[in-house]
């Protein structure tokens, strides 16, 4: 029981993070048909933004002016009991919330402007441009000293760490993550079951025809990109606070395709499917890590490689043998149906 609870509270935030990422990717590829090969960029923006913001404000609260990446900063922030994240709980939680909001906006705006110019060149080029952007961001971070270059930033922790009881604080964080995931899921469901969702499907089917029917296709696409990138930014914030640190090499392109695998397995164009995909992969990952711990070096393929091989092969096999995924795309639900019934009954 104890084990199960610990397992769940350590798994839930990861599930929430990947759930948010896959819902956001599903909005893009499943509903609108935009191939985002650079999801990781917006995730990284959220993560770095929250780390930089929270750390610098917390440090200035305790009157320290040291570089964020310095060991002094880590000590000033996270020495148990005396570090700033223990002594200024209100500010710390406040910064967590502020990070969520800002990350949504900043990642969203970047997403809007990165994609707007490229939206007319077809999915392959869009995908490549965003992929390139993500790589560029990572390489920049690797070389940008104020944010720790290759080592990244350390010294944060769970936003409720000051409570003292680790199980309680982690549980609280798990709940907050889950609540965010739920909110985003509900938002996404409403978003796509609307006249706008209809337009998105139309754009996915045939963007040229949609344009000829008066839809401002580039703007609609950029808007979806704004929202989806903002969501990825939120996931990035959760990651920072879950992990307590950010490193540039977390945000390798392959992470994007991890999320792709989730969406493809779950079913493109189905939000619940995206969640299922996220759950499956994050659980498999846990099991693999666990098995690796049990079996040690006797494992034929190291778990880290095995995990990615599974990701790759799942993408290929699902596309080959069950292209609609676990849960096929759902038709759009709007009140139009009810209206049709009324007309039928009336006439």
């Amino acid at each position: 029981m104890e084990f199960l609870i610990n397992f769940i509270i350590s798994w839930l935030p990861i599930f929430a993070i990947y759930g948010i990422l896959s819902i956001s990717l599903n909005l893009e590829i499943g509903y609108t048909g935009m191939a985002n090969f650079g999801k990781v960029a917006f995730y990284a923006i959220g993560a770095y933004l929250s780390a930089a913001l929270t750390m610098s404000v917390m440090l200035s609260l305790v009157g320290k002016s040291v570089p964020l990446y310095s060991i002094e900063a880590v000590q000033a922030l996270s020495t148990p009991g005396t570090g700033a994240i223990y002594t200024h709980p209100a500010a710390y939680v406040g910064l967590f919330v502020l990070s969520l909001v800002l990350a949504f906006i900043v990642a969203g705006v970047v997403g809007y402007f990165i994609t707007y110019p490229t939206l007319r060149v077809g999915p392959a080029f869009l995908g490549i441009t965003v992929l390139a952007f993500g790589e560029m961001f990572r390489v920049f971070m690797r070389n940008y000293e104020p944010l720790g270059s290759t080592k990244g930033l350390f010294g944060l922790n769970n936003p409720f760490i000051w409570i003292g009881n680790p199980q309680l604080s982690q549980g609280l964080f798990a709940l907050v993550s889950l609540a965010l995931l739920l909110a985003i899921y509900i938002y996404a469901e409403r978003f796509v079951n609307s006249p706008l969702g209809r337009t998105l499907r139309a754009i996915k089917d045939d963007e040229v025809a949609a344009l000829c029917l008066g839809k401002h296709v580039p703007r609609v696409k950029a808007t979806v990109f704004f929202i989806a990138s903002g969501m990825a930014g939120v996931a990035g914030v959760l990651w920072t606070f879950y992990q307590g640190s950010v490193q540039p090499d977390t945000f390798v392109p392959i992470l994007t395709f991890y999320v792709w695998a989730m969406v493809i397995l779950g079913g493109m164009g189905n939000n619940l499917g995206a969640l299922l995909g996220a759950a499956v992969f994050t659980l498999v990952d846990r099991v693999l890590t666990f098995a690796a711990g049990m079996m040690g070096p006797s494992l034929i393929i190291p778990p880290n490689y095995l995990r990615w091989m599974i990701v790759g092969i799942v993408i290929v096999l699902v596309l080959l043998f069950r292209p609609e995924g676990i849960r096929p795309a759902k038709p759009i639900k709007t009140p139009a149906w009810e209206a049709v019934k009324e007309v039928s009954e009336g006439g």
Binding site: A35, F37, A124, G127, I254, F257, W260, A261, I264, Y305, L306, W308, M309, V311, G312, I313, V314, I315, V316, L319, L320
Partner: peptide, 14 residues
């Protein structure tokens, strides 16, 4: 194209 992405990842870690 996405299938080729899957293959890429698979081969890379292979």
């Amino acid at each position: 194209m996405v299938a080729s992405l899957g293959l890429w990842i698979f081969y890379k870690y292979l």
